[in-house]
Simulated scan of single mutants.
Amino acid sequence: MLKPIFIVLVALAAVACVPNGAAELEVLAELGNKKLYIEDISDHLPKPGQMDEADSISLVNRLVRQWAENELLVEAAEFNLTTELEDFEGLVKQYRNDLLKHAYIDGYVRQHLDTTISQQQIQDYYDQNLSNFELKESIVQAYYAAAPLKAQKTQEAKRWFLSDRYQEKYLDWAEVFVTKQSNYGDSAWVPMMDFLQEIPLESTNPYNYLNRRKRFTCEDTALVYFVQVNALLIKDSYSPLPYVEERIKKVLLNKRRLTLIEQIEEKIIEHAIEEGTLIIH
């Protein structure tokens, strides 16, 4: 049976009138031998003048009720869950210990982890684990720029772009009229489907289309797109190193992190044995 619990609330209207020094000792509520003081909720109260008296009283009353509800629920749980209480206390203790261990290990790793990874280390890991880097999707190394269909000399610009002889003319024209372009350089690898979503290419076999044409143009209702394709790799082939370089860095850093954790766990045992605080029979 739930034991009786009584709460005594003070006159909340007096809260706004109590001087600062006295307010810190003002009791707002009592629950058995527990007391809630104004200073306990001071961080949640507005500064003088920010709220009228009626709203201030309403806020204090709400905070007091929240405190009371929390304390009452905890007491009710402790009273009614006596058989489970030991399990809860064990879980709380384990949770506290886990938090402490995590904070200590995390601080140790941050202090000692060497985050410098050379290009040779990346290359070595890539070569030794090449089978782990099969592409799950086709990727493309490409770039596009787009200009309004109504821009001056658009038709000439198309011919210049498609011709090796007139690339300089195209570039001069593009510098003036291009209003949109890809957000990555022409040496970056991106998923082919992501690239295709950015250009209005109409093709039933986009892989073959991109594979056969190093330069092409396509249009929507407002823009003409000038597309340069530098390379294309199909799904299930091996990823080029630049495409997985950041992934490899994360793997290598995580390996170093795990090694540091193993080291600190071993060192702390060895130190305790040397100091005589740990005796293993």
Rank of each mutant, 00 (worst) to 15 (best):
L223P: 01
N211V: 04
Y37D: 01
E202Q: 15
N61V: 02
Y209S: 13
F79V: 01
R215W: 00
L162T: 06
I38L: 09
D55E: 06
Q197C: 11
E26Q: 10
I248G: 06
V10P: 00
E39M: 03
V178E: 03
A14V: 02
V178P: 10
L258G: 14
L12F: 05
N205H: 14
A174T: 15
Q181L: 05
I269E: 12
F226C: 09
T116P: 00
A145G: 08
G276C: 05
K136N: 12
W160R: 11
P4H: 03
H112N: 13
D106A: 08
A11Y: 01
L278S: 08
I5P: 02
R165W: 06
N80E: 01
E219P: 00
A103H: 09
A68T: 09
Q197Y: 12
K93H: 04
E71C: 06
P200G: 03
Y225S: 06
D43C: 02
V224L: 09
I264R: 03
W160V: 07
I105Q: 03
Q155H: 07
Y125A: 04
E262H: 02
I117Y: 08
P48A: 14
L81Q: 03
D164H: 10
I264Q: 06
Q94F: 13
K101D: 07
Q94I: 11
Y243V: 10
S187K: 15
E274L: 08
D52F: 03
L130G: 12
S131K: 05
L149R: 15
I264H: 01
R159C: 13
M51F: 00
L85N: 01
P191C: 10
A147G: 05
V64R: 00
H281P: 15
K169P: 03
E84L: 07
D114Q: 12
V109F: 02
E84Y: 10
H281D: 12
H281K: 07
D55Q: 11
A14S: 08
H281I: 12
K47S: 10
A231T: 05
V140P: 14
D124N: 14
F177P: 00
S203N: 13
I139K: 04
L72E: 09
V229Y: 04
Q120L: 09
D106V: 05
E134L: 07
L260G: 04
V176W: 04
A14T: 02
I280W: 15
L210K: 10
R65H: 01
N33M: 11
Q121P: 12
L278T: 13
V251D: 04
Q111L: 06
K136M: 02
G32E: 14
D127K: 10
L59V: 13
I279A: 14
L9K: 07
H281S: 06
E78A: 07
Q181N: 06
L149S: 11
Q120V: 08
F216E: 02
I117P: 06
P4G: 09
T221Q: 13
K255L: 10
E89L: 13
Y238W: 00
N254H: 13
L171D: 13
D114W: 12
K35Y: 01
Y166V: 02
D236W: 02
D172E: 14
N132Y: 05
P191A: 06
I268H: 06
K35H: 03
G32P: 09
I269G: 15
L223C: 05
E175C: 11
K249T: 12
L149F: 14
Y243L: 04
